[in-house]
Each structure stands twice: as structure tokens, then as C-alpha cells.
């Protein structure tokens, strides 16, 4: 896919409460973008809108030049928009292999074909030793890695990673950064990284979007975000001139 995944002037209201206001954002193909913001900024709501789990109240979502607003999640996945979840949300009663196979059969493969692709993906991510484990028995970090492998099945055009580094050690976060770089390099997949680990975002994202109280308050490259007054204000309130990187880490 050569065109970006776009949110155009997206607003979402829940019973009068405005969760997103006129958010416009592009996720370009084969690049890593970041989405940051304090708790309650609307990051997950935006991810839900971009992946078909939430219809925008106003505005639109465009994929491959086509308006896909209101399309259901499974149909958007078939168009190549994949995601992970904050809580993992693995199919806990199924094996790791089956967790990946589900995406294969969901996208039209036979079980044999899906199993073969799933094995390849587990190898690629480096977790083939987990293949026969029951997903519900995995430790937290492995659960995250399986969630990413499941999302990457069938080479999606875009993948939205919702807090993949939560609970990871610095070493594990470095491994995750390497994996994300490989996703872009090997799969030519556009990545949106939603994270509270700002150092990770600043390290690997080429372009970063900042949400606060449902509004996109700033965007730019890491150098710009590090020095942005608006971003600092969103994270630190009005406490003055504090170095962004030092303050948040």
C-alpha cells in the first residue's frame, strides 16, 4: 500500500463527553510513527477509530484512498489494518500457534496454510519455542510478543501497537525496538506506536503525534517534540521550563 492510513477531522463523543475533537493524523506506509499523550488523552479511542472498533461521531478514516469510516473491525483487518491491545487479549484457551492461525483463517486461508504461515511468523519474531504453549499460561512479556506476532500475520499494511512496552524491562524494550525496526524494513509495514515509554518513542519514531484531552496538540520529529512547550505543558501542567526528556523518563 502506498497511501497513508488517515484520520480526517475525527471527533468521538460518548454520551455528550467528547473523547476526540477534530483529530487529523496520517500514518505513512513503511515508517514508524508515534502517538503519545497523558492518561485519558484519547489515544486508545483514536486507535479504536482507526481499526474499526469505534465509529467516528464526525470525520472520516481513509485507507488506501478509500473512506472506510464505519467499516467493521474484521473488514478493516482484511484491508490490512492490524492492531495489538493493551491487555494482550490473546485467545487464552488456544495454543500460541492457534492464536496466530486464527488470523490466517480469518483472512481466508485453510488451516494447513494458516498453520504454515503461523510457524513462519513465530520463527521471524523469534518465539517458535512457544508454539505449543497455551496462551493463557504465558508470562507477560511473551504474551506481548505473541500479540505482536498475531497482528503481523499475513503481512498487514499498517499495524497499530497499543502500549507494547508496558511492563517490559529496558533490555526487553530494546528488543522490541529492534523488532519494530524489522517490521518496517522487512515487511514495509507502517507502524503507529502508542506508548507511555517516551524514550522508546523518541528513539524509534520518525514522526510523533501528541494528544491531550482529545485534541492533537502537536506533532513533529523527535527533536521538535522534545522541545515543544505544548507537549511539556500537557505532561507537566504549568510547572515551568523542565527538560522534556528528563522530566518524563
Amino acid at each position: 500500500m502506498t497511501q497513508p492510513l488517515q484520520a480526517k477531522q475525527v471527533s468521538v463523543s460518548f454520551d455528550g463527553l467528547r473523547a476526540l475533537s477534530d483529530v487529523t493524523l496520517d500514518i505513512p506506509p513503511a515508517r514508524v510513527s508515534g502517538l503519545i499523550g497523558p492518561n485519558g488523552a484519547g489515544k486508545t479511542t483514536l486507535v479504536n477509530v482507526l481499526t474499526g472498533f469505534q465509529s467516528p461521531t464526525t470525520g472520516s478514516v481513509v485507507c488506501d484512498g478509500r473512506d472506510v469510516s464505519g467499516l467493521s473491525a474484521h473488514k478493516l483487518r482484511r484491508l490490512g489494518v492490524a492492531r495489538t491491545f493493551q491487555g494482550g487479549r490473546l485467545f487464552k484457551d488456544l495454543s500460541v500457534l492457534d492464536n496466530l492461525e486464527v488470523t490466517g483463517v480469518g483472512l481466508g486461508l485453510t488451516r494447513r496454510e494458516a498453520a504454515s504461515r503461523a510457524v513462519d511468523m513465530l520463527d521471524w519474531v523469534g518465539i517458535s519455542h512457544l508454539m505449543t504453549d497455551i496462551a493463557g499460561s504465558l508470562p507477560y512479556t511473551d504474551e506481548r510478543r505473541v500479540g505482536i506476532a498475531r497482528a503481523l500475520m499475513m503481512a498487514p499494511s499498517f499495524v497499530l501497537l497499543d502500549e507494547p512496552a508496558a511492563g517490559m524491562s529496558a533490555h526487553e524494550a530494546d528488543d522490541l525496538a529492534d523488532l519494530i525496526a524489522r517490521i518496517v524494513k522487512d515487511m514495509k509495514c507502517g507502524v503507529l506506536l502508542i506508548e507511555h515509554n517516551i524514550s522508546l518513542v523518541l528513539k524509534i519514531c520518525e514522526h510523533i503525534h501528541v494528544l491531550d484531552s482529545g485534541e492533537l496538540i502537536d506533532e513533529g520529529d523527535p527533536a521538535h517534540i522534545k522541545t515543544s512547550e505544548k507537549v511539556l505543558h500537557a505532561y507537566m501542567g504549568t510547572q515551568g521550563d523542565v527538560d522534556m526528556q528528563g522530566a518524563i523518563l
Binding site: 487464552k92 488451516r111 494458516a114
Partner: peptide, 26 residues
């Protein structure tokens, strides 16, 4: 049970939201 549909449906039973994100039409 061992068919594509059976696997997809059990995935939907465990995690309907994740199944939809995996392309499953529950």
C-alpha cells in the same frame, strides 16, 4: 471443531474483540 470456522468461533468465544481484530467475522 477442527475446521477453520470452528477455530475462528472458539477464538471469538475467548476474546471476541481480538477475534474481530484478527479478521474473524463472528
Amino acid at each position: 471443531g477442527i475446521s477453520r470456522s470452528g477455530l475462528a468461533l472458539r477464538a471469538g468465544r475467548d476474546e471476541a474483540v481480538a477475534a474481530a481484530a484478527s479478521g474473524v467475522d463472528i
